[in-house]
Nucleic acid binder design. Structure first.
Lengths: 163, 163
DNA sequence: ATAGTGAGTACGTTTTTAGAACTGAAGTCA
DNA sequence: TGACTTCAGTTCTAAAAACGTACTCACTAT
């Protein structure tokens, strides 16, 4: 399989990674959540190459995760803002940061702490079940076919169909 | 900045992505959560090239996320299992899948549904605050410097111990 | 002895990335 | 008027990574 075919997979993870599964996209998104919006600011903060940055921003716009909106006329200049769809990525970013905080911090401890302004406390993110509110462990999840399921043929035929 | 320097960043997201921010690693991990453990099974399911698969598995072992354990002698063969550290990635995987379910499903709907065996219901994952239990929105989080802030020890070899 | 299996490695080709330089529209200084 | 600056990219070449096939190694099965 090639990377470019990944978005045709039935798996939601594969589809998501077809957008975000590269070296830079999630870092760009992190900066979006930190209110970075302009090309040169992304470039300066991330140290990413300009051609790659341009390509990734364009792809994120095409995916509906960012919107390119003009912030001035003469000359027309655009900035990139998270759409509501893009905002829905916050659990992904928060989970990744939490993993790094927990397991990859240096000997001095976490680089940043997170405070929940609703309750005022420092906190960790916890993933819970929408039905019962209990934390979800991977052992407690069973997977069932959904309406968009496709039969997985034993070979890797490119089960065609669907856009 | 080059990719190889990313693990020296103070940002936990950057450090996490230095391990997982490539095309294949999260797909390999998805299969690990689905109890896939052997080289040829990963290869067959993912369609990933063998050299890349070998490289990624080795890196995940070096990062302490997978452990290589023998499952037979004569000839000695190894399988790859999630460590407790690797298990801690489940919120990342679940969040990514949920994003795909919500925003990238085809017209037929979600390919899979998730049932929480603890309560018996189909569910969505919700990220909540460990202090107050309320769902966390990115707008409600403020970032404060932590004990490991600002330092950029360029050589913080990821605690490679444990298994 | 021959064939097969599981887990890789070697290697040549194709694709992607890195990094510097360049473009273009417009504003500012003088 | 002309030189210089800003922002948002694009162009170009070299380096790195991914792709895909074939091959190795250590066995087991027939």
């Amino acid at each position: 399989m090639q990377w470019s075919q990944l978005d045709a997979e039935a798996c939601s993870l594969a589809r998501t990674l077809s957008i975000m599964g590269d070296r830079w996209t999630l870092l760009i998104l992190r900066d979006c959540f930190l209110k970075i919006r302009r090309f040169d600011d992304f470039h300066a903060r991330l140290g990413i190459g300009r051609p790659i940055l341009a390509d990734r921003l364009q792809k994120l716009v095409a995916a509906g995760i960012l919107a390119k909106v003009p912030y001035q006329e003469r000359p027309v200049r655009y900035e990139y803002r998270l759409t509501p769809k893009g905002m829905d990525l916050s659990p992904v970013i928060i989970s990744l940061v939490h993993f790094g905080d927990t397991h990859l911090a240096g000997p001095e401890g976490r680089p940043v702490l997170h405070r929940h302004v609703v309750c005022g406390n420092l906190f960790d993110p916890v993933l819970v079940c929408s039905a019962c509110g209990e934390p979800v462990s991977p052992r407690d999840v069973v997977i069932e076919p959904g309406p968009g399921a496709r039969e997985r043929s034993p070979d890797l035929s490119t089960d065609a169909g669907e856009a």
